[in-house]
Design a protein around this nucleic acid. Structure first.
Length: 297
DNA sequence: AAGCCCCTCAACCGCCACATT
DNA sequence: CAATGTGGCGGTTGAGGGGCT
């Protein structure tokens, strides 16, 4: 099946965006919203390819973009996530609110990949084989930057799964949790956490009406509603997953599918490092792996 | 001061998955 | 079911800037 190019390249501007183009694009999206990228340039009066507009918006103009230096915490998280996910920058970026996949990819290629190479060289005088890590050749012969952190990569543990997103899942707890559930599971009282780490009980999914509608009695079943960005970076890094079991991220803006998620899916989306899991989490994870139903809304 | 080299990162490209017709 | 449309992803490129000689 043939594909038409995303746009005619003739007569279009290329290269760096001007301030005026940025302004036009921003104003247009403010009024009309994102989407329909192919037609956007014509409607907005931009001599740009639709793809280029989308990229410019997503990577640079979006108001929620966090620009500036990657913090040590963020760097550590990137390393951990890359260890789990490989070069799946969009997934990694999804765990770093305000950061874009392009930014993380660039940061990895220019900083972290070298640090890790240096680290492994230092450890055993050889660079271990890393799954799915394709370092750009054009950087190989360039001088190494000074190492400013002591970030320690983990052994390769890339989980290869298809990225699956869902916002709301219903999980029946294992017997262990029915007998002695973690605090937040005992009382599924609508706790969600915002970006500042504050908890709220505003999530309508936990409303009594919802519980009854779903046939849940609150003590046996519980709902979890996750969104990327709901948990701050520090929360994620410092999570005691036995306590924060309900605060994982699993995002979705496209909730039409009804998927069964494997434990791998669940684990990679909810835990930065599997070894961090507590006994409770392990039990819970085991339950999910062996029969828990994930019912995407 | 000029030229060269290297690094960073915004932007581009090609491909893929999924939705729609 | 095939063709087409659309959005998204990861790899790569190259302009521009800074540092070094």
């Amino acid at each position: 099946m043939g594909r038409s190019p995303c746009c005619s390249k003739e007569g279009l501007n290329r290269g760096a965006w001007t301030a005026l183009e940025d302004k036009i694009l921003t104003e247009y999206i403010k009024v009309h919203g994102e989407g329909r990228w192919r037609n956007l340039p014509k409607r907005a009066g931009l001599k740009r390819c639709g793809k280029s507009c989308r990229l410019r918006w997503l990577n640079y103009l979006r108001p929620d973009i966090k620009r500036g230096n990657i913090s040590h915490d963020e760097e550590e998280l990137i390393i951990r996530l890359h260890n789990l996910l490989g070069n799946r920058w969009s997934l990694i970026a999804g765990r770093l609110p305000g950061r874009t996949d392009n930014e993380i990819k660039n940061y990895w290629n220019t900083n972290l990949s070298k640090k890790i190479q240096n680290y492994h060289s230092h450890q055993n005088n050889s660079v271990p084989c890393r799954k799915n890590t394709n370092l750009p050749n054009h950087h190989d012969n360039k001088k190494q930057p000074s190492t400013t952190t002591d970030a320690t990569p983990f052994a390769p543990h890339v989980v290869r799964t298809k990225a699956t997103r869902c916002t709301k899942v219903i999980v029946q707890p294992p017997q262990k949790f029915e007998d002695d559930p973690p605090a937040q599971l005992k009382n599924p009282t609508k706790n969600t956490m915002d970006n500042a780490g504050n908890t709220h009980d505003s999530d309508p999914i936990y409303d009594d009406d919802d519980v009854s509608q779903n046939g849940l009695d609150g003590s046996m079943d519980f709902l979890m509603n996750f969104n990327v960005g709901d948990v701050s970076l520090c929360d994620l890094l410092n999570s005691d997953f036995s306590v924060d079991l309900c605060d994982f991220n699993y995002s979705n803006d496209n909730s039409s599918s009804n998927e069964n998620l494997s434990f791998e899916d669940w684990n990679l989306s909810n835990s930065v490092e599997p070894n961090m899991a507590s006994d409770d989490l392990r039990s819970f994870a085991s339950f999910v792996e062996t029969g828990g139903d994930w019912l995407a809304e």
